[in-house]
Design a protein around this nucleic acid. Structure first.
Lengths: 337, 337
DNA sequence: TTGAAAGCGCTACCAC
DNA sequence: GTGGTAGCGCTTTCAA
């Protein structure tokens, strides 16, 4: 090692000094660190991984168009997660796959290549090839979203408490006096959108309020679904969408059909975004705390990876990430008879 | 190696067989490949990198809110690039940084750690800390966008031919009879948005058409800029935006101010997206060929990495990615006096 | 507290 | 065609 020579010590001492191991004279350590810094030296990842195993985790984003609004925020999530990870020596890399199956394939392969120490999975589907693939691997995994089926004990789930938030949406609309509510869900297979629909349905159950969930996967189909929903004879007086883009579409279609929002139709966007504040009327929305969610992912990841090192401790489950209260803006009001 | 033992050969033969080197009996090769496959064995990335250097490149996405509409499509771009790369053994990893400086820091660090074989840089700024950092490194780099300053000969730029497309927008609006045209640019520092503004300005120059470019970085400031632009006494009869979200804002503000689109105001979205088709009126837009762009990035990356291996050949520059003709929809028309 | 040396898993060179 | 083996750059025993 250049650093070792320049500092006049052996490579072992350099290694100790840099990894903060004790057993090195304080002066020596400082000298080594200084020299390393001057030389701009950093340990080679490959050499380090060869002994210690990989120090990076991967998130394979699936871009098949079904991911809905949250797809766009994957990088925001990763940014937030990286804030946490930067303190340690774990990094989170993102890769893109065009289908769930391909994502599963890549993770299986990269695990075999010992390229990554663990994986983050987001946008869970009901039958998810990624879970099937990872289940048989001894890989540490962080799930964003609670899966329907039980998962290995070593895994961790970071869950967004949007069931609570969506129940609150249901109550809010009920309190306003709405009697016919519809939800425009994202892709059918998406677990998150299902859970949201279920939450609002249960909140409304027993109150005699009519509730329908229609699927509108992708902007075009969403637009078609909105169209038929609002043109129907017994159209709802309130529509809840899964994402912000679809909510924008609802506003547009309503305007075209001469349905006044919020008086004749209330609209709630299931995922808030800056754009929701700028429409006319502005959209009442469920907050989407990407930053908090990302931070939680960072912590969970650190947790599973550490637990994987020291097989003893189990990765404690994380608390659901609080979504916060509904952001009430201009698109909701009591229905006018 | 397990595979070597199971196949009854030495590790050397396994290595040769797997890397397609000649000098292995065909039967042996097949047997080795079969055994490796059965055992699900793949070479450890770390060990391989230790000898051959890293086989992955990284794109550090900057998420400081200034990136504009294209930020959301980073993963689409990477998906398209990966299609190309999957054939070789190069992979492209994405990381997220919260500022250009942080991105520069990460790349410098990862290069020192020999973690990545090269970098892809997107969303160039006028004074870009990333270029400053990478310039002094012998790292292969693919730039998305042509930089203003000269760059190392080994680098490659993948450029989108949107100057042509934006010049075409200028001509289109001139032909329609517009005399006052404004452009809502993205973040000031962004090179791409500048080039677009310049292209449209030159196209309009000499025709006596008034042209103004106002900056609206981030949705809120964009909304404010649109507001003052459309409220002004001598408001333009045509507005071109850098991205699709801003175009949506323009439509909304116009509606609120009772300005009829397209009759009293034409709107052109500088970056097409599915949402552009769904507004009322639908938005005339400049196509944004993410897929082609991503493929080009994949090829360019393969090029620079290969050139880096065999120092002899220079990485040939790639042709600009063709944007295609303006998508004329409902938001543009001749101005009514 | 420090140095010497083994070894992580692979590739590539040199014998055979 | 195939096997032995050095060595990539680190971490980590084990001795000194």
């Amino acid at each position: 090692m250049d650093v070792a020579r320049a500092a006049g010590v052996s490579t072992a001492v350099v290694s100790y000094a840099l990894n903060g191991r004790r057993g090195v004279a304080e002066v020596t350590r400082e000298r080594v660190l200084r020299v390393a810094d001057e030389l701009g030296w950093r340990p080679a990842t490959a050499a380090r991984s060869l002994r210690a195993g990989p120090g990076a985790a991967a998130l394979v984003a699936v871009h098949d168009g079904a991911a809905g609004a949250r797809a766009g925020s994957t990088l925001d999530l990763v940014t937030a997660a990286s804030e946490i990870l930067d303190d340690g020596d774990v990094t989170l890399a993102v890769h893109a796959a065009s289908s769930v199956e391909h994502a599963a394939h890549l993770m299986r392969r990269w695990w075999a290549e010992r390229r990554y120490a663990g994986f983050v999975v987001t946008g869970l589907r009901t039958e998810d090839a990624r879970l099937a693939a990872l289940r048989h691997l001894p890989a540490p995994v962080v799930l964003i979203d609670e899966p329907l089926v039980p998962t290995p004990a070593a895994w961790r789930s970071v869950v967004l408490d949007d069931a609570t938030a969506f129940a609150q949406v249901g109550e809010f609309l009920a309190d306003l006096g709405h009697r016919r509510v519809a939800m425009l869900t994202g892709a059918e297979g998406l677990l998150a959108t299902r859970r949201r629909a279920t939450a609002i349905r249960s909140a409304l159950a027993g109150s005699g309020i009519e509730f329908d969930a229609v699927s509108g996967d992708g902007v075009d189909r969403a637009a078609a679904a909105v169209g038929s929903l609002l043109s129907s004879g017994s159209r709802p007086t309130a529509v809840v969408t899964d994402d912000d883009v679809t909510a924008g579409i609802v506003l547009d279609v309503a305007r075209r059909l001469d349905i006044a929002v919020p008086w004749q139709l209330s609209v709630v966007a299931g995922t808030d975004s800056p754009a929701c504040r700028l429409t006319t009327p502005s959209l009442t929305a469920v907050p989407y705390p990407v930053h908090a969610l990302g931070n939680a992912v960072g912590h969970a990841l650190l947790g599973v990876l550490r637990a994987d090192d020291a097989k003893g401790e189990k990765a404690p489950q994380t608390k659901p990430v609080d979504v916060g209260g509904l952001l009430i803006r201009g698109s909701t009001a009591p229905p006018t008879p």
